[in-house]
Amino acid sequence: MDTTILLFLLQDGITNGAIYALLGLGLVLVFAVTRVILIPQGEFVTFGALTYAALAVGKVPGTARLGVILGLVALAFDLFAARNKLTVRTVARSAVVYAGLPLAILGIADAIANPQNPPALNFLLSLVIVAPIGLYLYRIVYQPIAHASVLVLLIASVGVHLALQGLGLVFFGPEGLRGPPISETAVTLGVLRISGQSLGIYAITLTLIVALWLFFGRTLYGKALRATAVNRLGARLVGIRTSLSGQLAFLLAAVIGAVSGILIVPVTTIYYDTGFLIGLKGFVAAIIGGLVSYPLTAIAAVLVGIVEAFSSFYASNYKEVIVFTLLLPVLVLRSLAAPAVEEDHE
């Protein structure tokens, strides 16, 4: 094998792997806090990427309108759920978070959308547009069934995934889009040319891994969030607001998904349904990490990226087959390592 090819494949694998790591982290985060297996993580990727691409050509993306619609539905849910104990303060809070915020975002997007905007501004605006969608989804879909089994939550996730993917097609059409890179700089390292874009991906991934790891392992609030997942009632009894922590987890997951999408859209053409497959590769990594460990998930994600890069070079037709089959031996090892310790999970 040619060393140059080897290095190129490794670089490609690591860059993709870093994206999978980000998504895997989001999945672990959401699962750790809410027990939801976030199949629609991929849609956040698509939404982030396509929102950014639409802003780059000066269009106001449909996702901004979606935020308003979801916000209003969430507001209705919130007011209905609290209909017997409404106070001016709670109503005002709900109205600001669920109606005021998305309307303001839509207004800003409308006002400043311009093809001449610098990429950094569009980057931030895309994040601001996509992030609340995660929060509202939690309020509408998951909060009412927060006590349900992992299976029910999982099927709900599938429903959300289907709906969001369909909306992606409605908003952005069947053609794929590309966005401008956030940075044009590049570093040359021997035969390799590492773009500023890739460096940005590495930096953001590493920062998030360390931040999440510290947050959940070291801070009281992070530990409180983990406690919520293990025992909701117990967490509430000691004063943790479980619905708030769920909303926060979803907000973070949406941000992570959108960041991943914006990072890859300059490199890969993103279609309305691309996110699903990318998200699932994040899954492969998250499962290898046992849905609990952030560092292990990140390592696994880089491995997935490298395997994918090599299989697309040597057996491009079977790339997906190889990547998803990779999961099976891992699952077998897991099941052998931890035989039937379950009991009464209902």
Binding site: I37, L280, I287, L291, F324, T325, L328
Partner: peptide
């Protein structure tokens, strides 16, 4: 033999594969 949520995720993986 997988317990809990690993089983459904495993089935998604080989389903796609």
């Amino acid at each position: 033999r997988l317990s809990g949520h690993y089983l459904p995720l495993g089935t998604i993986a080989w389903g796609i594969s």
